[in-house]
Design a protein around this nucleic acid. Structure first.
Lengths: 182, 182
DNA sequence: AGCATGCCTGACCGATCGGTCAGGAGCTGA
DNA sequence: TCAGCTCCTGACCGATCGGTCAGGCATGCT
């Protein structure tokens, strides 16, 4: 019809991001996305192999940064430095990609099961270990888990707070809350 | 058939709890629950008006405790005491009902939209305000949100940790992490 | 014996889901 | 002019969802 050019791919991506942010991944149907774009559901599936492929492409930049952070953490020989790198890197990532993280709207557990995101679970585990100061103590791991999950849930809210202010608040919280490495 | 007595109501509740804990509320169908019990889907809907009624009954005790906590917090005239009551009360609730909270598996946002749980959103807001020391500063509210959401997400994990140990770890974390009231 | 009631079943309903498919419109190069 | 390609459509598919309904089978009261 009136669709002039093949920028549709990008439009679908943008529409999907918009809808996912409101109703979550599972709560958004291909028809919802198609309606938002103004095309047919079949057109959406012409540009993307399936629904999961849309999410994968949407999250790709954030996942790449997460992967890089994982490498930087792994390169730290000392627990204390690994904890610092993990804290600063994760806060930075959470703030920068807070829009993308918000898309998941608490669907982390299910989404992580999907084959495309399988390796993220392992990265999360290493991130948790680093934040816990590579300690096996339950209290350290519990605190790290609370902060990790809490920050992931939080960054989507507070969209009215500037990046800078959000990052400072989260970093200050982490510095107060993380058990010091001993 | 061989179903002897009307303890089916309780069996359905138990089966639903078991399944919700694994696949979440939305990820569990009435047929799943019926199969777990060993009855028909129609039998499930004979005992419960609809799917949501199962969840409502499952969460009722936890919600009642939450409501009582809300009242106790509201009765505190000073921000400092309200913060203390909120922190201790919420940790206690999270640990006691960690099984129930785990059922929700990150489906809080959607579930809170449902009419049966509408008032919980307001209670959560007051809980957040109390933890933030009734401060309007963004940093205080951000920290409170991270801790609230993080604890809710956490208590379902660490099922191998004893109640006592989990509560102590969470309380110690809150004491470190909460911005002091000034 | 007859009847009501509680508990439960299988068959069925409309809606919605992700995904497929044949084909059409419009452009491009031979 | 016509073949071929990209982009897209509407019709359709099987599966699954929550929920309904008429009826069946015990049990217990009259």
């Amino acid at each position: 019809m009136a669709r002039p050019a093949p920028q549709t791919h990008g439009e679908i991506l943008a529409a999907a991001a918009k809808r996912f942010a409101v109703t979550g991944y599972r709560g958004t149907s291909l028809q919802d996305i198609a309606s938002e774009v103004g095309c047919s559901k079949a057109a959406v599936l012409y540009h993307f192999a399936n629904k999961e492929a849309i999410l994968t492409e949407l999250m790709a930049p954030a996942i790449e940064v997460l992967r890089a952070l994982d490498e930087r953490i792994a390169a730290q020989p000392e627990p204390a430095s690994a904890q610092r790198v993990a804290a600063e890197g994760f806060v930075d990532l959470a703030v920068r990609f807070r829009g993308e993280i918000a898309l998941l709207r608490g669907e982390f557990p299910e989404l992580l099961q999907q084959p495309d995101f399988a390796h993220i679970q392992q990265i999360s585990e290493r991130l948790l270990a680093a934040l816990a100061g590579r300690s096996e103590r339950a209290s350290a791991r519990i605190a790290a888990f609370v902060l990790l999950a809490g920050i992931a849930e939080t960054c989507g809210e507070f969209s009215d707070v500037a990046d800078e202010e959000l990052r400072d608040a989260l970093l200050a919280l982490l510095r107060r809350a993380l058990a010091p490495v001993h």
